[in-house]
């Protein structure tokens, strides 16, 4: 069952702009039903961590005539929407990240839209729509080629 608005309010009780963040999250999960909000521990680059909400799941990306469910995780900082979400692609074990100008080896997503993020002109819903367009031209993940089972893994 989908997460309700009141559950979201509870999850985001420590967010500085809670009502705004809840509202934008609700419109995203109404449109993209395969994304769901999850409360989890986010570790900052300085090693500190905080309980934050992320939107986890898949977005439909059309690439060369087929639609793929690209798995992403968008972390909403407690200063959202004044700071952009921290976004990652989530490859499964059968996928590899295609690093490039939009994705690094950790799966972190870099987009001009995130770089130039400014409230109120920037919004979660529009960000996802832009991701779908950009990933449709340049997918951030690919399936690994099937490797023969007789080929042992190599360890250095």
């Amino acid at each position: 069952m989908a997460v309700s608005k009141s559950q979201l309010k509870k999850m985001m009780s420590k967010y500085k702009y809670r009502d705004l963040t809840v509202r934008q999250t609700v419109s995203v999960i109404a449109m993209y039903k395969d994304l769901k909000p999850v409360l989890d521990s986010y570790v900052f680059s300085d090693g500190s961590s905080r309980e934050l909400v992320n939107l986890t799941g898949t977005i439909p990306v059309r690439y060369r005539g087929n639609t793929y469910n690209i798995a992403i995780c968008l972390w909403l900082l407690d200063t959202y929407p004044y700071n952009p979400p921290v976004c990652f692609v989530k490859p499964t074990s059968s996928m590899t990240i295609k690093t490039g100008k939009h994705v690094d080896a950790n799966g972190k997503i870099y987009l001009p839209y995130l770089h130039d993020w400014k409230h109120p002109r920037s919004e979660l819903l529009e960000l996802i729509q832009i991701m779908i367009v950009i990933f449709g031209g340049e997918p951030p993940v690919f399936s690994r080629p099937t490797v023969s089972a007789s080929y042992p893994p190599y360890t250095a």
């Binding site: 769901k36 799941g57 469910n69 996928m95 399936s143």
Partner: peptide, 14 residues
């Protein structure tokens, strides 16, 4: 029941 959609990705031979 609803476990969400299974992630997929394009084949890498392209």
């Amino acid at each position: 029941l609803n476990g969400g959609t299974i992630p997929t990705a394009p084949p890498s031979h392209t």
